[in-house]
Design a protein around this nucleic acid. Structure first.
Length: 494
DNA sequence: ATCGGCTCGCGCAA
DNA sequence: TGCGCGAAGCCGAT
């Protein structure tokens, strides 16, 4: 039997069949189950779903669900995702697409929703994201759904399955990217995959969803009273920035226009807005790396001929852009995607055992060292250490859902220094980062945490107590190097 | 203000 | 087999 494939331009290396079932051309619609790439533009997954709908001549149904039972679910993350769902509702309602936003009102209430929708689907397309509970949820769904399911990778510039190699340093990953990216720069997702897609209208599908009522406008508006009714952690308050694709795009424009040119020199200035601030939007899939890269390349009037011929792994000069743009793209592409490489290829990416062996050895050698200060998770959480700078960074995390890039490293290094064991320090970092950081639970966030313990880094001398040969950082040097006045004022004691 | 040394693994040249 | 080099460091010498 001929295998059905849609016409389209989504690269084969980004699509993955995740069950053995057949496509069902007699179904009533194509179902796109949006779980990670929560946006209407620049998404290979949505593009693939639209390709299928056109190929089969069926309407497209988009299901975007928000569970309440995942770890660390709180007002903070719900509000951010709901902002995005409200925006998606507007984007999709202007198209010939049936958008179904579902917010789980109680634990387990969403069970069965996907299967019921899949019963009438020709095919289910979903997102291929390599971290948190999403891979497990996707696998469980693939076993229960009796129609073909595809997962599509719209994570970054490099498809997560482009290689089997697990990269141990940014340098070797960068060198690999410099060989692999040129071909992929010509195959970006469409800014608006539904434009001109010519899909049949699906306005009156009469979905049998009485058991799973569509999210109310009040909830999508992020109404505080509506949030309070959900069984999630209300002690972690919304972070004070609006989520959603439009807001992410607005920030991208502002960054490129006003802050990109000074990025290389100013990114570590504490207490000023000098970075893009896009990582929460990237984490929840509300903006795409492809869109960001396109905006940067456009601002720099870039041409493919500017690419260096040789892949040396060097941090600057490969793109042929300004120093600032090269530095920014190194963060966005090299450092973000090396974390996706880890999460996609190493199922134990959250485990201490995945640290490089030199780091595990040296930390073990120093596990018995005397600790001058030792704090519990709760003391760290409440910013109750002896170090006012560390406390300020922790308070920024709790109130804003982020920490200044440079201070985040110091934050982690000190948790290592002030914990009974390196393993316990890892547990504290993961707990606090996942609970409070908008971009926590992301592959990228794990890179940041594990870097503090030696991942992607090299040994440094001299060997010190507790740290061994793991790179040491000190609050005293940080205070000397940086102007912390404004920062300490804003994040001073509660 | 700037420099070297501290230390290990990788990729490439030879 | 040798060599250069690497997420943002630290410290002491000059």
């Amino acid at each position: 039997m001929r295998k059905i494939e849609p016409e389209g331009s989504v690269p084969g290396e980004r699509t993955l069949e995740i069950n053995a079932a057949e496509v069902r051309p007699s179904g009533r619609y194509v179902l796109y189950w949006m779980t990670a790439f929560r946006r209407a533009g620049w998404s290979f997954a949505l593009e693939r779903a639209a390709d299928w709908a056109r190929e089969l001549g069926k309407p497209l149904v988009v299901l975007e669900a928000l569970r309440c039972d995942y770890a660390w679910a709180s007002d903070r993350f719900h509000r951010f995702v709901l902002d995005g769902m409200a925006r998606n509702a507007r984007s999709f309602d202007r198209r010939a697409v049936t958008y179904y936003p579902y917010v789980e009102p109680s634990k387990g209430a969403g069970r069965g929703l996907l299967e019921v929708l899949a019963e009438n689907a020709c095919i289910v397309v979903t997102d291929d994201y390599p971290a948190f509970f999403l891979p497990r949820m996707r696998e469980a769904a693939a076993r229960r759904v009796a129609v073909r399911m595809e997962a599509v990778d719209s994570n970054g510039l490099l498809p997560i399955r482009a290689t089997d190699r697990l990269f141990k340093t940014a340098h070797s990953f960068r060198r690999f990217l410099q060989k692999e990216l040129p071909d992929r720069l010509a195959r970006f997702p469409k800014p608006d995959p539904l434009k001109g897609a010519d899909l049949p209208a699906g306005r009156r599908l009469g979905l049998p969803l009485d058991r799973w009522p569509r999210a109310t406008a009040r909830l999508l508006a992020g109404d505080a009273g509506a949030l309070r009714t959900l069984p999630i952690d209300h002690s972690v308050a919304p972070a004070g920035l609006r989520g959603g694709e439009t807001e992410g795009r607005r920030r991208l424009r502002a960054f490129v226009r006003r802050r990109l040119a000074g990025y290389a020199e100013e990114r570590n200035r504490v207490g000023e807005e000098t970075t893009s601030g896009l990582s929460p939007y990237l984490h929840f899939g509300q903006i795409s790396t492809h869109e960001i890269v396109t905006a940067v390349l456009h601002a720099e009037k870039w041409k493919p001929a500017r690419l260096a011929r040789k892949a040396t792994g060097s941090r600057a000069g490969w793109w042929g852009l300004s120093t600032a743009a090269e530095a920014f793209l190194d963060q966005l592409v090299t450092w973000r995607e090396v974390g996706f490489n880890m999460a996609a290829l190493e199922p134990r990416y959250e485990r201490y055992e995945t640290l490089p062996s030199w780091a595990r050895k040296t930390l073990k050698d120093h596990e018995g060292d005397q600790r001058e200060h030792v704090y519990t998770l709760r003391q760290f959480e409440r910013a109750e250490t002896h170090d006012t700078l560390w406390n300020a960074a922790q308070r920024q995390l709790v109130t804003e859902g982020r920490i200044n890039n440079y201070l985040r490293m110091l934050w982690g290094k000190k948790i290592l220094e002030w914990s009974p064991t390196p393993r316990k320090s890892l547990a504290v970092m993961i707990e606090l980062n996942n609970k409070y950081a908008l971009d926590g639970r992301d592959p990228n966030s794990y890179s940041g945490i594990f870097w503090c313990l030696g991942r992607y880094d090299r040994p440094w001398g001299p060997e010190r107590p507790i740290f061994g040969k793991v790179r040491y950082m000190s609050s005293a040097s940080t205070r000397r190097k940086m102007d912390l006045g404004v920062y300490m004022k804003v994040h001073g004691p509660w």
